[in-house]
């Protein structure tokens, strides 16, 4: 089956989501309270993306120190806190993961 159909549908739908508040001329401005809550969105969404990726290994919940990705993720989080730099965080996390995979 051709992939073009679902690619176009996903593209149009994604554009509609992105445009929902940016395109309409007559939309109400969010209240200061709503704005403060919206500022919490990145913390909520990014955490929901990251945490399962660290704790689940091949679909199995693995909250242990033998979970290489969890250990690498925790160290990368400390590095991210100190360095405030995406590339340094990436290198640190991948280096720890590879070291654990090779020698762990």
């Amino acid at each position: 089956m051709s992939a073009w159909g679902w690619i176009l549908a996903l593209g149009l739908g994604t554009f509609a989501i992105r445009a929902s508040f940016l395109l309409p001329r007559r939309r109400g401005e969010p209240s200061p309270y709503v704005t403060r809550v919206l500022q919490l969105v990145p913390a909520a969404v990014l955490s929901a993306l990251v945490v399962p990726a660290l704790f689940y290994v091949d679909g199995v919940f693995a909250p242990t120190w033998t979970n290489d990705r969890l250990v690498a993720g925790v160290i990368a989080a400390v590095v991210a806190w100190r360095a405030k730099n995406v590339m340094v965080t990436l290198i640190a996390g991948m280096t720890v993961l590879w070291a654990l995979m090779l020698f762990g």
Binding site: P42, A72, A76, V86, M94
Partner: peptide, 19 residues
Amino acid sequence: AWGLEFSVPLMFLALLIPT
């Protein structure tokens, strides 16, 4: 075996921590 897909959550992590 390189596990390169792990850089996806690492990148989201690097964006999350400063918030």
